[in-house]
Design a protein around this nucleic acid. Structure first.
Lengths: 237, 237
DNA sequence: CGACGCTTTGAGGAGATTCAAGACACGTGG
DNA sequence: CCACGTGTCTTGAATCTCCTCAAAGCGTCG
């Protein structure tokens, strides 16, 4: 059992990120059952398979129930640029809303299981749940805040970026109820570097450096944060 | 007359960016008059004055009628990081939608005149204009596409970034009906560098380099693109 | 067990930064 | 209208961070 994430019960409507769009904002708990019926569950993709492709028509929002994915675009030379990693319980597909055509490609980093809320189903929800659209709007404007956060990060040193990366993953896993101090990094060094805008060799060197400072323990993809405070000081100092 | 922008008639509801939110998407031309009555026009800020501050409550969307502004955040040391420049006819304020608190500060780079569509007025429009919310959603998800564009740009050389910066400004001015080949850069080299993530000395050197290649002519803040094709090749090759 | 891909480690080099100093532009007041 | 001062812009030189290239180590999976 190498994948710590897989040991937890799969994400359901009640604990997936979509709940933030339903339960707290006017949608009654009883209605969540309705949502359950609405949503297409148990879609599977194997490692390396695409969930959707850049250029394909937008078909709705996706929620990862288990597994991890990468969201990527391509530069003018056709090299992939990893825009984000999507962790279990997180949402995917907003890159298709604006133009109704996906701007990015989503690829499974390991076997993933996901729900699919189609455009039509979103319409249904909009009608039955007043405020649903407003929530979608807030959620997507949230992208703006995230964008600013990423901009700030892009100005910082390679070391600070790696520290921030580990802390962000940790925080996001924690929110969904996973262990925040010990988890598996499903992505390669190459993919981490790509996402952070640094060479994979640099990632390797920094991870090694953090280990020698006894901030983390890392063996292959399994990561353990042993001194979160110190790691955080790398990011915030 | 040093400011080429000021020579054009001021932006009105009919040619401001907001029109994209109304006319093409279900709002009849006749209703635009209604919008005119709704909107608070002729707000003024002098150079250096804030339009809104980070941390202040969201009060609605703003459309610049004339003048230029910068949208900024602060890093952990309190240094400003310029998230974007806002040109005449463009919209401002989406950084406050998600949390209902502004995430950024907007400051006039020269005297600006702007319209203000308050949250309440947005509500009114939502009720009277079906699909208005959907359009706002698309507009804000558009942020996602822009974010990807910026991510790609952040991976490129300083020279490519400056080329892209000039071309982007040119394109945005063109869309609003201004000259695309000759315009005034209201922001300082320092501010350009800040925005692009490079030192202001580097901006200076690159601008000088482009001049020596006869791609642009620049005198103080006045810019003329003399070889757009070549400039574009710097960006896309 | 062997092959392949991923990761680590080292050496050298390129691009951009930082620091420093001088040129220029602009607005102010005499 | 010009002299002056301040802030912006330019230019040069030294330095640094991170990249690229290269090769070896390690793990994983057929």
């Amino acid at each position: 059992m190498s994948n710590a994430l897989a040991t937890k019960t799969a994400i359901t409507c009640e604990n997936c990120n979509l709940d933030k769009l339903c339960i707290p904002k006017g949608m009654k708990r009883s209605e969540v059952g309705e949502l359950k019926l609405l949503v297409n569950r148990n879609n599977i993709r194997q490692k390396g398979e695409a969930i959707y492709h850049s250029g394909s028509p937008f078909r709705g929002i996706i929620a990862l129930r288990s597994g991890t994915a990468k969201l990527l675009s391509f530069d003018r030379n056709g090299n992939e640029i990893i825009v984000d990693f999507i962790l279990p319980g997180e949402l995917l597909g907003f890159d298709g809303v604006s133009a109704q055509i996906h701007n990015c490609t989503a690829i499974a980093l390991e076997t993933v299981n996901f729900c699919h809320l189609t455009s039509r189903q979103i319409e249904t929800l909009t009608l039955s749940t007043p405020g649903f659209y407003q929530i979608l709007l807030q959620r997507s404007c949230n992208q703006f805040d995230i964008q600013v956060e990423k901009l700030l990060l892009s100005r910082r040193s390679a070391e600070e970026r790696v520290a921030a990366f580990i802390l962000h993953i940790s925080e996001r896993l924690k929110i969904r109820g996973y262990s925040e101090l010990e988890f598996r990094l499903s992505m390669s060094r190459e993919e981490i570097g790509n996402h952070l805008g640094i060479a994979h060799e640099t990632v390797s060197r920094i991870v090694h450096h953090f280990q020698s400072l006894e901030i983390i323990e890392i063996k292959a993809k399994q990561l353990k944060i042993t001194n979160k405070k110190k790691l955080f000081s790398f990011y915030k100092d």
